[in-house]
Nucleic acid binder design. Structure first.
Length: 200
DNA sequence: CCGAGGATTATCT
DNA sequence: GATAATCCTCGGA
């Protein structure tokens, strides 16, 4: 039995956590199914100074998990339709998170296919809203402890990813009113050439 | 393949 | 009342 990534891992800078999550294994456990998938794309949202982050304007009811203890899930609804999954980062009292943007399915493919019925297999988990549908992740998992081996949502360490396999670039999908440098700064991380990332 | 436009609703101003 | 860390459909090439 492999231990989940420890809370000390998440307590680091969100950029470091986002990069470090590449290659790690997200595990979704229910009574009947275990789904495992490799994290292949992430984004870092960090600090009051990050004008693209929910934490920018101080504490609100929605973003409260970002301020709490690291190593927990921050799940919220976007565009009134899709749940997005983040891992809370940095010290308690510091608003930061790493968004999980894409996964490479490993186990539980039948359950994923059922959750994504009607879609082509290549679009099962290659986007932050798609992967939560595929793994049945909802607000029920907000604040879930990602370090609890018996929890519904955990992250295990994966094989190490060499630096040359990682690409970086601007974050995706922010409103046009996010000012520079936050709009264009390279805080998206993905595995170069992995077919499951949301964009090449 | 690609771009444009609509869906849909909690959250914040 | 405006906005949003997105996805899907449809039309055209």
């Amino acid at each position: 039995m492999i231990d989940p990534l420890p809370r000390t891992f998440y307590a680091q800078d969100a950029r470091h956590v986002a990069r470090g999550l590449l290659g790690a294994i997200l595990v979704r456990q229910t009574e009947s199914v275990t789904i495992r998938a490799r994290i292949v794309e992430t984004e870092a949202y960090t600090g009051l100074d990050d004008l693209a982050s929910h934490g920018r304007a101080g504490r609100t009811p929605r973003n409260l998990p970002m301020w709490e203890a690291p190593g927990h899930a921050y799940v919220y609804l976007v565009y009134g339709r899709y749940w997005l999954l983040n891992a809370v980062c940095e010290a308690e009292g510091q608003p930061a998170a790493a968004l999980i943007r894409a996964l490479e399915p490993l186990d539980g493919l039948a359950a994923i296919a059922q959750n994504r019925a009607g879609r082509p297999a290549r679009e099962y988990t290659n986007g932050p809203g798609r992967l939560t549908l595929a793994l049945d992740i909802t607000d029920a998992h907000n604040r879930a402890d990602l370090t609890d081996p018996d929890g519904p949502l955990i992250i295990l360490p994966g094989e190490s990813v060499p630096a040359e396999a990682v690409a970086t670039g601007p974050r995706i999908g922010m409103g046009k009113n996010v000012p520079e440098p936050w709009f264009s700064i390279a805080r998206r991380y993905w595995l170069h050439d992995n077919p499951h990332v949301s964009r090449g």
